[in-house]
């Protein structure tokens, strides 16, 4: 049977196209325009060509922010993925406690980013916060407002607290979809716990873990609110990741050309990761 082609459906997506055009395409075009010009305000612009791109690509400040961004993302992934899988494996498969665990896991995900930042800011303050005061009381020197290592530790801990649940829920969904017969067969063969994980659970979780890794990669790569509220990018520049640096350049220094060039480079990185995410997911579904 031939498919009926009805082009009226295009009108149904027209409102979405108009909204996307207004809130994404037009601002993006403006950013591209700004990225090749300089301005001192009053809508007076001077053409600069690719100067800002060359400057950004050669700037140590950008390299630093990019390096910190990748370090943060890599650390977050290295902790959250194994931890999320471990928690999912430890959770009960059914019954009352399974529901309790799921609700508890979902709770951090429901808290807005700026609230998480504010919460951890108070929690980690060295003089009144439970974490900060407790660590100092134990003799561990800790002050996230003064020491870069403490600031990093707090940012990572905060992200792990906020987002490991997402990995847990995805891994748990993957585990739930495994047929009971696989476990019975493994039991009959006398397979060890590790062998069950390595040859049954991990391959079955492959696709959800791919999604988890890519989601966490993208989210942590675009992270802004939480570290901004917690540390404001400090002490010094130690927790200034790409997005924070971008806002500093655009709004703090009103350096629109540099900020626009940074935005485009940042956008291209995100676009590449999105494309990889989409491609891997689609190829995975097909296979």
């Amino acid at each position: 049977m031939n498919k009926v082609q009805n082009n009226k459906a295009w009108f149904m997506v027209l409102p979405v196209l108009v909204i996307v055009a207004l809130n994404a395409v037009v601002p993006l075009m403006t950013v591209v325009n700004y990225s090749v010009q300089d301005t001192f305000g009053n809508n007076v612009f001077f053409f600069e060509g690719t100067r800002w791109f060359s400057e950004v690509l050669a700037s140590e400040r950008f390299h630093g922010a990019l390096g910190r961004q990748f370090s943060l993302t890599a650390t977050i992934l290295a902790i959250e993925i194994p931890l999320g899988v471990a928690i999912a494996l430890a959770m009960p498969r059914s019954g009352f406690w399974a529901s309790v665990c799921l609700v508890l896991m979902a709770l951090p995900l429901l808290i807005p980013w700026n609230v998480v930042g504010a919460m951890w800011n108070i929690y980690a303050l060295p003089d009144i916060g439970l974490l900060g005061y407790g660590l100092n009381w134990l003799g561990i020197p800790y002050d996230f407002t003064q020491q870069p290592v403490s600031a990093w530790f707090t940012v990572i801990l905060m992200d792990v607290w906020h987002w490991t649940s997402l990995v847990v829920l995805l891994a748990y969904a993957g585990l739930q979809s495994i047929d009971e017969n696989y476990y019975r067969a493994a039991q009959i063969d006398g397979a060890s716990r590790w062998a069950v994980f390595r040859y049954i659970q991990l391959p079955k979780m492959k696709h959800v873990l791919t999604i988890a890794i890519l989601l966490r990669f993208m989210d942590s790569f675009m992270i802004y609110t939480e570290p901004f509220v917690l540390t404001g990018g400090g002490p010094g520049n130690s927790t200034t990741v790409l997005s924070i640096d971008l806002v500093k350049a655009a709004l703090g220094e009103f350096n629109l050309g540099i900020a626009s060039a940074m935005s485009i480079i940042y956008f291209l990185m995100t676009l590449l990761v999105c494309w990889l995410f989409y491609t891997i997911t689609m190829q995975g579904e097909k296979s």
Partner: peptide, 15 residues
């Protein structure tokens, strides 16, 4: 559209 700061180079790119 002054606020969008168009130049002929970027307009050519989008065209």
């Amino acid at each position: 559209l002054e606020w969008m700061a168009w130049t002929w180079q970027t307009a050519t790119f989008f065209i």
